[in-house]
Amino acid sequence: GVSIALSPEELIARIMDAEPPEIFLMKDVKKPFTEANVMMSLTNLADKELVHMISWAKKIPGFVELSLFDQVHLLECCWLEVLMLGLMWRSVNHPGKLIFSPDLCLSRDEGSCVQGFVEIFDMLLAATSRFRELKLQREEYACLKAMILLNSNMCLSSSEGGEELQSRSKLLCLLDSVTDALVWAISKTGLSFQQRSTRLAHLLMLLSHIRHLSNKGMDHLHCMKMKKMVPLYDLLLEMLDAHIMHGS
């Protein structure tokens, strides 16, 4: 497979090339912020970002060689984690703020107008400040995001045929390659062997917080949908429904 043919350096270069462009909301959010217009802006933005995320995933070496079943399920499981890690990366140099897009930055107070959001907001800020303390590098960020995608789903399909088993072994192989790439990226920072192992552990430990945050965010969005606080349509609705369905 492609994953084995590429060196860690080449794989990182391909993963970096796959990075989505800056995405703008392109609509003025009315001030003062209200629950309805903040949620509307955030969901509009998420809908746009999701399309770019599918493009991104397709450019991760080896991803399109997985079965379509696996591609769909990986994306359905990880989409909010990927959005949240991107948000943390954009916000890493802006303490106390979340940079949803270049034209939508919210402080904690501004975010608190949405019921139930402040807890998630604080957790996002805390994880972002941890990345800031660790001085997360762009290459490390890109590897972590690819890892989230490839590690998002351990579920087996009900009818495991030859193609599915082959896809599962390709997936594990790809995950190994991305892990090697992350180790390589860390090794460039000039740390001692011991410090590199510690850094790898610190970065990977943050992924469990991101998964937890994504679950919280998913419940919150589901709740907003049920209360008809925000109309959801198209891709975002489909992705939310898929997640809720997998969860149940």
């Binding site: 599918i54 079943f69 994306l75 891709l235 489909e238």
Partner: peptide, 24 residues
């Protein structure tokens, strides 16, 4: 793959060889 799966937007964007960004 079930019929329901085949109707997913995600499914369509993944299968099509054009860029999802262009399709959307």
């Amino acid at each position: 793959t079930s019929l329901k799966e085949k109707h997913k937007i995600l499914h369509r964007l993944l299968q099509n060889s054009s860029s999802p960004v262009d399709l959307a």
